[in-house]
């Protein structure tokens, strides 16, 4: 070991620790609720794309209806809260469970087939759920209020049990912790047998099967886990916004956005979805705010162009070149010439 590599390692670790410290101390010096709200949404998107990535990235399929599971999470915890006063903290697990079961049921027939079937089926399923909710005022004992959507009843003041806070700071920490947890889950899965099997089955299903992998089974479990975690994010979204309606929370656009953030960031990598959210969300928000007043639609033309350019020049996502850049920087400051494997 030469000193350069030692130094490189120290700098690498220091930077990462600083990043974590930075992220966790943001509310101490950022007081503007608007800024916090933007960051919260950023993390929520990073969270949802990371859960999408569990099946869309690692299992190598393309789910295009994940908003259905966000919606299942939001609606379940909210109607339980309205009808029975069940705390959203408990309701979110119920939502997750329902989402997982639904995801597994949808996954069983479709995950055995060619990927295109899966993509189209999940998309049609997502649209089906939206149409169903938009046409339903009363679902069993629950009032879901059709296309107008529902409000989470306001509880005055900070109420931990009701998952409602006056300040944005608790929301910030909750979603940050949730994001860290799913990142950890993703990292952990990528290092154990099911992770290897998922990746193998996603790339070459026949070869994986001949090596002892029941490919469809692992994909179905990944789908279940992904839907479960996605629904938890749905509850968070409901508690944060306190009002939601089918076109927004169950919309096709939302499903596509989740998929594209992950794909542009780098599907199947751990950091990819986060990178995607960090880059794309501000871009799409800023262009929407500043351009839609000038020429409606222009921001989506730009978004379309970005999609095409990334796919043409960085089909594996932006995380690859960013990693290279970071490594180049590390080598530069620590004086190590050659690329070092970590």
């Amino acid at each position: 070991m030469n000193t350069g590599i030692q130094k490189r390692k120290t700098i690498d670790t220091t930077l990462k620790v600083l990043l974590v410290l930075f992220v966790f101390t943001v509310p101490l010096w950022v007081t503007s609720p608007t800024t916090l709200q933007i960051l919260i949404f950023l993390f929520l998107y990073a969270y949802l794309t990371t859960t999408w990535n569990l099946v869309g990235g690692f299992a190598g399929v393309l789910p295009l209806g994940h908003s259905a599971y966000v919606g299942i999470g939001a609606y379940t915890s909210t109607v339980l809260f309205i009808s029975y006063g069940v705390s959203p903290w408990i309701g979110m697990w119920a939502g997750g469970l329902i989402a997982a079961i639904v995801g597994i049921i949808i996954g069983i027939p479709t995950l055995k087939l060619r990927g295109a079937y899966f993509a189209l089926s999940t998309m049609a399923f997502g649209e089906g759920v939206r149409v169903l909710v938009e046409n339903t005022m009363q679902l069993g004992p629950f009032n879901i209020n059709g296309p107008r959507g529902i409000c989470v009843p306001l509880i005055p003041g900070n109420n931990i049990a009701a998952f409602q806070f006056l300040s944005k700071v608790p929301y910030y920490y909750i979603i940050l912790v949730m994001l860290c947890v799913v990142l950890f889950i993703t990292w952990y899965i990528s290092r154990i047998r099911p992770g290897y099997y998922l990746a193998a089955g996603g790339e070459e299903p026949e070869a994986a099967q001949s090596l002892g992998v029941n490919v469809a089974k692992y994909k179905v479990w990944a789908m279940g886990l992904s839907c479960f975690l996605t629904a938890l994010g749905g509850t968070f979204l409901a508690q944060l916004a306190l009002y939601f309606y089918p076109k927004q929370i169950l919309g096709l656009d939302f499903s596509f956005e989740l998929a594209f953030i992950a794909l542009i960031g780098g599907r199947g990598t751990i950091a990819g979805p986060v990178v995607g959210a960090l880059i794309l969300r501000p871009v799409s928000e800023l262009t929407r705010i500043y351009l839609s007043a000038v020429l409606p639609g222009l921001h989506l033309v730009i978004f379309g162009l970005v999609l095409i350019l990334v796919m043409l020049y960085q089909p594996k996502g932006l995380v690859g070149p960013l990693e290279k850049l970071y490594n180049w920087f590390l080598n530069k400051v620590s004086g190590t010439e050659k690329e070092v494997r970590t």
Partner: peptide, 28 residues
């Protein structure tokens, strides 16, 4: 670029990009 891939999902994304561009150009 994806000769070895059976179903290049990148194509789905590119065509979706085309979708966004065409629809919104028409809107503009």
């Amino acid at each position: 670029g994806q000769r070895d891939v059976r179903e290049p999902t990148e194509v789905i994304i590119v065509t979706t990009g085309v979708w966004y561009i065409l629809d919104n150009l028409a809107l503009m």
